[in-house]
Amino acid sequence: MNQGNYSVMIVDDQKPDRYLLKRYLKKMNHTGHIFEAENGESALDLFLNFEKSKNEFSDDFPPMIIFLDINMPFLNGFEFLDAFSKIRESHPSLKSSVIMMFSSSHSSSDKEKAFSYSFVKDFITKDEISSETIKEKIHKILEP
């Protein structure tokens, strides 16, 4: 895989948080496509219309890493995970997509709940984020 050339998705209702994450990615020389969604529902649309998204974004779709917030209006992080796991069953190519939780929650029950999904690989809390941590975590996922 080309260094930095992988698509990611950021699902977060907070625009400044998306901005921050984008800058961290940029800082670690990420050059791939970045999908953005401001809640679970709009993120899910991208996967529900799988063929359309595939046509539109070709190899960039599906994103390799999905950064997922928990507290969002309409469809929150967990509701998204639930729906996503169902879509994943019918689209084998989605199996290569992994999720990294991206939340300000420190609640252990939230972490437990998130990790109960096999495709959730890590959990970043927003207040501990830095370019170093994010680099480390992404490397861990991509080059285990």
Binding site: P16, L20, N71, H106, K126, D127, S130
Partner: peptide, 19 residues
């Protein structure tokens, strides 16, 4: 839960932004 989350979230954002 929401209070702690919603109070912490903007602080985390601000910290990042200030950086």
């Amino acid at each position: 839960y929401r209070t702690s989350h919603d109070l912490k979230a903007p602080l985390a954002t601000m910290k990042g932004l200030i950086g």
